[in-house]
Every structure is written in structure tokens, then in C-alpha cells.
Design a protein around this nucleic acid. Structure first.
Length: 269
DNA sequence: CTTGTCACCTGAGCGC
DNA sequence: TGCGCTCAGGTGACAA
């Protein structure tokens, strides 16, 4: 489900409700997420949530003794609800708080994760990640340098977590359209100037999507149950065969790296 | 090292 | 109504 904006919207949604709340129970109904949920997560019990942070698409629930790491995979959703709320299908995890509320993870496909990071350690999954796209760590110099010698399609390149985190299929398509770059082009053969444009469009697109509450395609909702409104601003994603908003030409749809890719054959080269 | 493919899992939508 | 097929917002683990 979520790319970086949707995860950030989730973070902003749950943060005011759980920040500084003390955990009284961690209920794991189905530990078979992408990786088995470790027993270590029970260490949260008795601890306050000292910070709700995000790294890439991982949500970090920090406590004084370690950090609970949540990933929403393709279909994960978080809600903060009364802990007595009846459990529904695919409600796999509850983190219950002293105020009677709980953070509940629902994830039909179970590609999500709930892991534990001990104090003063960095979980292995977080060690090899590229820069955050919305910080100055991600800039055109770096993107350009990393691209040299790469034969793979630029779309796959910007979706690679070692290059930059948080750019999934929707925003890769959108950013490349805005930058006027054909998503199939070899990453190593694109000029510095074009990477400057691409870098800025990735930042702008992600920031705008967060502002709009994320992109609701079918089942993403903000934690208050409302949809995100960025879907109405999508220029190419999901619009294969329809008219390009810039030139009117029919948008093309192809598979790049197994993922649906939409582009304008006239505006993107 | 790079590059491409598969796998994990459920549910929705479509054609027949 | 049902069946079989394809597709979906992610990403680690492999194979070549």
C-alpha cells in the first residue's frame, strides 16, 4: 500500500495519540508477517513511547529500552482505537496503552513487519539504506554520481533503496513524467542537468503527497479513516491509454522490472 | 560487483 | 454464481 508519503501520513496520524503513552500490553495474534514477530517486542511493556520516528518506509516506535520497528508492506494499515474495539480479519498486532487506546496493525497480505531494535543498535534492515529524499542528504550530485555506469532503467534506479529511500512505483512514475525523462532509459546515460530536475521533482512530489494526506488508490486511509487526496493529482500513474495532461497524446503503459510503468512517449525522452 | 527474476500473501476485478 | 486468471502501493533473496 504505502510509499513514503503514506507512511509519513500514518506517522503524523498516530504520533499525537501515542507519544509519551505507556505500553501495557503487546498482543500478537498472528506472528507470521514478512518475518516472524520476535518475542523481544514484549520489552515495550511498561515503557513509554518516547518518540515516533520514520526511516524510509519504516515507522520507529522508540522507547527507553529499544525501538519497535513497523513496516506496512503493501497492504498494512494502522489505527489508534479503543483497545476494546472488536478484532477484525487481519488485525495481527495491538500495542496497548495505559490510557485504554491501542495501536492496531491490520495487514491482509502480511508483507509488513514488526521487529525489535535493541538500544544502541541499528537493525540490519536499516543499515544499508540510502538517503531520505526530503532531506539535503539527497541531492543531484549524489544521484548523478551513483548513476554512472548503471545500465538499468532509471525508474528502477530511483526505486532502489540504496540510491534513495521511499520512492515506490507511484511516485517514480510521477517524478519521471514531471522531469520529462523516459523511465526506460539507462540510468548511467542521463545528464547531470536532468538529474537536477529529477531530484527536485522527487522531493516536490513526495512533499505534495504528504500535504494531501497521501494517495488513496483502493484501501489506503489516513489513521482517522479518511482517504488521502493525492490520487486526484496523479498525472500518469493509473492513466495508461488516457491523454497526457501536457500534450494530449495517449499515455503508454509498459512493464519495467515487473512493475506497471506509464509515460508519455512525446513529453518524456 | 551488477542486473533481472522470484517469492511471500490475500483480495479485487475481469472474462467465460 | 463460480472458476481461473491477472494484478496490486514492497523488497529481500537468489541466479545468472
Amino acid at each position: 500500500m504505502p510509499e513514503l508519503p503514506e507512511v509519513e501520513v500514518s506517522r503524523l496520524g498516530i504520533q499525537p495519540h501515542i507519544d509519551q503513552q505507556t505500553v501495557t500490553a503487546v498482543t500478537v495474534r498472528n506472528p507470521n508477517l514478512r518475518w516472524p514477530v520476535p518475542k523481544d517486542v514484549q520489552q515495550m511493556i511498561g515503557q513509554p513511547i518516547s518518540r515516533v520516528a520514520r526511516r524510509a518506509k519504516y515507522l520507529l516506535l522508540e522507547t527507553p529500552v529499544g525501538t519497535g520497528i513497523l513496516h506496512l508492506g503493501m497492504s498494512g494499515k494502522l489505527r489508534v482505537i479503543d483497545s476494546g474495539t472488536p478484532v477484525e480479519k487481519h488485525d495481527h498486532v495491538d500495542i496497548v496503552f495505559a490510557n485504554g487506546q491501542c495501536l492496531r496493525l491490520n495487514d491482509p497480505r502480511r508483507f509488513g513487519a514488526f521487529l525489535w531494535q535493541a538500544l544502541d543498535e541499528t537493525h540490519e534492515l536499516l543499515t544499508k539504506l540510502g538517503p531520505e529524499p526530503l532531506t539535503s542528504d539527497f541531492d543531484d550530485d549524489r544521484l548523478y554520481e551513483m548513476s554512472r555506469g548503471k545500465q538499468s532503467a532509471v525508474k528502477n534506479f530511483i526505486m532502489d533503496n540504496h540510491v534513495v529511500v521511499g520512492v515506490g512505483n507511484i511516485y517514480a512514475n510521477e517524478s519521471l513524467f514531471k522531469a520529462g525523462i523516459d523511465p526506460r532509459r539507462a540510468a548511467g546515460k542521463i545528464s547531470k542537468k536532468r538529474y537536477q530536475a529529477l531530484t527536485q521533482h522527487i522531493k516536490d512530489t513526495l512533499a505534495a503527497a504528504i500535504q494531501q494526506g497521501g494517495t488513496t488508490l483502493k484501501d489506503f486511509t489516513q489513521t482517522d479513516g479518511n482517504p488521502g487526496y493525492f490520487a486526484q493529482e496523479l498525472l500518469v500513474y493509473g492513466r495508461g491509454g488516457q491523454a497526457c495532461v501536457t500534450c494530449g497524446e495517449k499515455l503508454k503503459e509498459v512493464k519495467i522490472g515487473q512493475r506497471a510503468s506509464v509515460y508519455c512517449g512525446s513529453c518524456q525522452s
